[in-house]
Amino acid sequence: MKITVDQDKCCGAGTCVLLAPDVFDQRDEDGIVVLLDSQPPAGLHALVHEAASVCPASAIAVSE
């Protein structure tokens, strides 16, 4: 799994952090997404896919 985030699209909702806090975080100053782990272990893949789908700004892309 390879994750990319588009900080230009991110709206700072933090939905991804609620789902997968080991993979995503937010910048303190403006809430924009920070990718903590672009290649997370298999056990987190389902949550990452859900985070990408639920992101209200469509800012997360996942490829296998």
């Binding site: 700072g12 909702a13 933090g14 952090v17 609620l18 937010q26 910048r27 303190d28 403006d30 809430g31």
Partner: peptide
Amino acid sequence: LGWNMPKHARLHR
């Protein structure tokens, strides 16, 4: 409600 504090608002959620 957060005004220019999105991360903090989310933490208080």
